[in-house]
Amino acid sequence: MADLYQVENLRLSFPDLTRKPLLGPAPRTEILKDLTFTIPRGEILGIVGGSGSGKSTLGRVLVRLLEPSAGTVRFDGRDITHLAEAELRPLRRRFQMIFQDPMSSLNPRHRIGRLIAAPLRLHGSEDPEKGALEALDQVGLPRSFASRYPHELSGGQRQRVGIARAIALRPDFILADEIVSGLDVSSQAQVLALLEQLVAELGLTLAFISHDLSVIRRLCTRILVLYRGEIVENATTAELYDNPRAAYTRELLDAIPLPDPDQPWI
C-alpha cells in the first residue's frame, strides 16, 4: 500500500446559521468541494491557500475531528469516512495533529511530563514516563522540562513539546496546522529543521498546512493549492515553483516578498 491517505470526492458542508430562516433548516455552505487526492507514505505534503480556503477544515477531516458530508477518506486502506468515535479511538494514535498556537494547545494545568505521558498511558504504553522523556530527547529539550508547566516555556519550546506529544505516540501521520506562523524567524527555522529530521528518522508522513509559501517550499515534496474549497493545483514542489499552472498559484507565488538587493528599497 503506497498511499497512506486516499481521498475521493470529499465534500463537507456546514449549516449556515447566519442565513437560517425563523423556521426550518439553515441553508448549507460548502466548505470543501469534491476533493480527490492521495498522500503517499513518507511524503511531506504542503497544503496552501488563503484564509477561508478550507485548508484547516481539510486537515481536520484527515484526522477525523470533522465528519465529511460525502465522499470517502481512506487511511492505510481503511475507510474512516464515517467511523464512530469508539471505532476511531484505537486508530487515533496513528494520526496526530499539531496546532498553530502552542500555548493554547497545552493544558495550562498539567506539567510537560504528564502532557506527553498521558496519551501514552491511554494507548497502553508500559512505561509512559520513560516514553515522555525519550520524546523530549527527540525534540531536543532537556529532560528536566518534564516537571515544568507550559507557561514556563518559550514559544519555540512549547511548539517542540507539541511535536513531542505527537511523535511520542509513534504515529504514521502528523498534521501540522500553521505550526510555525506564531514563532519568530529563528525559532521557525529550528522547528522546521527538527520536523524535517524527525520525518526522516521516524519514517513519518506529514501534511503541513501553511499560508507561507517560503516555508512550504523549504519543507514539502508535494503541494496542494486550495482556493475556496477546491484544489486548483496538485504538483511536486519543483513543478509548482518552476511552472505554476493555475492563475491563483501564480498570484500566491508573486506575493512572496523576495529580498533583492539590486532593487531600490522604496
Binding site: V63, L65, E85, L88, R89, P90, R92, R93, F95, Q96, M97, F99, Q100, D101, S104, S105, L106, N107, A118, P119, L122, H123, R165, L169
Partner: peptide
C-alpha cells in the same frame, strides 16, 4: 473550544 481540548480528542480520549 480550546485547542488542547480538541487535541485531547485527537489523542483518543472519550467525551
Amino acid at each position: 473550544h480550546l485547542d488542547y481540548v480538541t487535541l485531547s480528542r485527537t489523542k483518543g480520549y472519550g467525551e
